[in-house]
């Protein structure tokens, strides 16, 4: 692990919980027994959330961000895409050197998981996971195939839109975030009960990646851009300074 820089220890912005999905969302049935019923105990961030793990480049392999090749070395089947963007915080600063991990179904909508029994076949050359560290400006990039939509047991005929799961670290444990990115123009987005756990239309839009022809590579792959925003950090001369700062 490597050290984070100074300033990466200020108090965190408060989380806007009306922007995030609620815990109890009956349209997504599993949430009904897994949502806490008691109110959360409100607490400003402490050192325990302002600090967090850091990851070094030495942990990352050369093909880790290439899901087309990283399973067997032979190319996976599907529509080749670059998925790129930046990890920013709420003040708009890029967040460098943080770990971004992704996982997804293959081009047919099938996960490499014993609990996924969907009809679509496994691709022998697609594992379904990738990871990378953000650059100095917070940028990241993956090469993958566009995942297929797939049905899931919820209501009788629910389908997940095409999506990639993302797990992102900040410099503080309280910034930890898992989310999903969707693809511009997918008509299943508006019909998805998991998407609809989010109440505000603008928040849903923040999860939809636009096609980015500037980053497409002619005769090779298309590109989609997806920025991730983590909680910001509050800087004030008037903030109570802790011992040792």
């Amino acid at each position: 692990m490597t050290a984070n820089s100074e300033g990466d220890r200020d108090p965190l912005f408060f989380r806007d919980r009306d922007w995030h999905p609620a815990a109890y969302t009956p349209g997504y049935k599993t949430s009904m027994t897994r949502a806490p019923f008691r109110p959360l105990v409100a607490l400003g961030s402490t050192l325990s959330e302002e600090t967090g793990p850091a990851f070094g480049q030495s942990m990352i392999g050369a093909l880790d961000n290439n899901l087309i090749l990283n399973f067997t070395g032979q190319p996976a089947i599907g529509e080749r895409i670059i998925l790129h963007g930046r990890v920013l915080d709420e003040t708009g600063r890029g967040v460098p050197n943080v770990l971004v991990e992704i996982w997804q179904a293959n081009a047919g909508g099938r996960y490499r998981h014993k609990k996924d029994g969907y009809l679509a076949p496994l691709d022998p050359n697609f594992g379904g996971c990738g990871r990378t560290l953000t650059g100095p400006d917070g940028s990241y990039e993956f090469l993958t195939v566009r995942p297929g939509a797939y049905p899931w047991p919820n209501r009788v005929n629910d389908w997940r839109p095409m999506h990639v799961h993302l797990s992102v670290f900040g410099s503080g444990f309280g910034q930890r975030l898992i989310t999903q990115m969707y693809f511009e123009g997918d008509p299943l987005i508006a019909r998805c009960p998991i998407v609809r756990t989010i109440g505000q239309e603008k928040a849903i839009e923040a999860l939809v990646a636009p096609l980015d022809m500037n980053r497409a590579i002619p005769m090779d792959c298309l590109a989609y851009k997806f920025d991730v925003v983590l909680r910001g950090r509050r800087q004030s001369l008037f903030e109570n300074r802790r011992e040792g700062m």
Binding site: F13, R15, D16, W19, H20, P21, Y28, S31, D64, N70, F71, T72, L88, D89, E90, T91, G92, E101, I102, W103, Y111, R112, H113, K114, K115, D116, G127, G128, C129, H165, S167, V168, L177, I178, T179, Q180, I194, V195, T197, I198, K202, A203, I204, A206, L207, D227, V228, V229, L230, R231, G232
Partner: peptide, 28 residues
């Protein structure tokens, strides 16, 4: 200010992404 990216569930297949070896996805 920007808004924090909204969360979505980790879903049933989170181990593919975060602990693939424990799931039996070796070699990545």
């Amino acid at each position: 200010y920007l808004k924090e990216t909204p969360s979505q569930t980790a879903g049933p297949f989170v181990h593919i992404g975060l602990t693939p070896n424990k799931l039996g996805i070796g070699g990545v």
